[in-house]
Computed example of a mutant assay.
Amino acid sequence: MSSPPPYPGQPGDPQDPRHGYPEQPTQQFGQQDRFGQGQGPYDQQYGSYPGRPSAHDPGGYPGYGAGPSPAPPRNGAGVAALVLGILAVLTGLFLLGGLLGLIAIALGIVGITRASKGIATNRGVAIGGLVLGVIGVLMTVAVVVFAVFSLNLFNDIDQGQFMSCVQDAGSDQTALQQCQRDLEDRLQGELDQLGN
C-alpha cells in the first residue's frame, strides 16, 4: 500500500518550487543569536547590533519581561491622613480636633509628596486627609475664638458682679438663685440695648 501524495506546500511535494533544495534552518522568535541577544523577526530581516538588545525583544530592556519587581506603593501616610482628618472633623469642637487636624495636614503633605514622586498611588486620599485636617483645625479655631469672645463679652456686661455675688452668697441657695436672676436681668438688658 502506497502512502498518499503530500499536500501542496508540504516538504516532499514535487510541485513545491523549493523541491530539491535543502531546508534552511530558521531561528524562532526569542532565540539567542551568537552574541547572546534575542532576535525578533524584524531583526532577522534588518539585523541588529552586536551587544545590544533586540528592539523587538522586551526582555532586554529594564521594566519589561524578567527583572526585579517594583516596590509596593507606600500609601500609609495618605491613609493615615484621611483617618486622622475624619477624626479631626468629628472632634473639631474640642482642642483634640485641632491637634488631630494638624497631624492630618502633615501626613497629607507627606502623602501628596510621595504620590508626586511616584512612590505612592493614593494622591486623592492624601488630598482628602489634608482637606479634612484643615477643616478640623478651622473648626477648633472657631470654637476657641467664640469662647474667648463670649467670655470677654460676659466680662464686659457683668463686670465681675456675678462672681462677687456668688462669693458673698457662700452656700446659701436662695442668695445663689438671686445672683443668677440678677445676671439674667443684666444680660437681658444688654440684649435689649443691642436690639435698639
Rank of each mutant, 00 (worst) to 15 (best):
I127Q: 14
A126H: 06
A120D: 09
M139S: 04
D156L: 11
G128W: 00
L153A: 14
T113H: 10
G124C: 05
L107H: 02
L90G: 15
F154K: 01
G108L: 02
L95A: 15
F146M: 01
V110P: 01
T91D: 10
D156Q: 15
F146E: 00
G124P: 04
V125C: 05
G97Q: 06
L107S: 07
D158T: 06
I119S: 12
V141L: 15
I127E: 11
A106D: 00
V137N: 04
R114D: 13
V145D: 03
G133A: 12
R123Q: 14
G118Q: 04
D158W: 05
V144D: 02
V144Q: 13
L107P: 02
R114V: 01
I103G: 14
L90D: 10
G136W: 01
I157G: 12
G133V: 06
I119E: 14
V148P: 00
D156I: 06
D158L: 04
L130Q: 01
L107G: 03
G128A: 06
V145H: 01
T121K: 09
G136Q: 05
A126E: 03
V134N: 05
G124F: 07
D158K: 09
I127V: 15
V125T: 15
G133T: 06
G108C: 03
V110Y: 00
L132G: 06
G92P: 07
N152F: 11
G101M: 10
F154D: 04
L100W: 07
L151E: 13
V137C: 11
G97P: 07
G98H: 08
L99K: 07
V145W: 04
V134I: 15
A126P: 10
V125F: 03
M139R: 10
I127C: 05
G124E: 10
L96C: 07
A106M: 03
L130H: 00
L95Q: 09
G133W: 03
G111H: 01
L132Q: 01
T91R: 14
G108K: 05
L93W: 14
G92E: 07
D158M: 03
I157D: 09
G124N: 14
G129M: 02
V134A: 14
G92C: 10
D156S: 15
R123H: 11
L96H: 12
L99W: 13
D158Y: 07
G111Y: 01
I109G: 12
A142H: 00
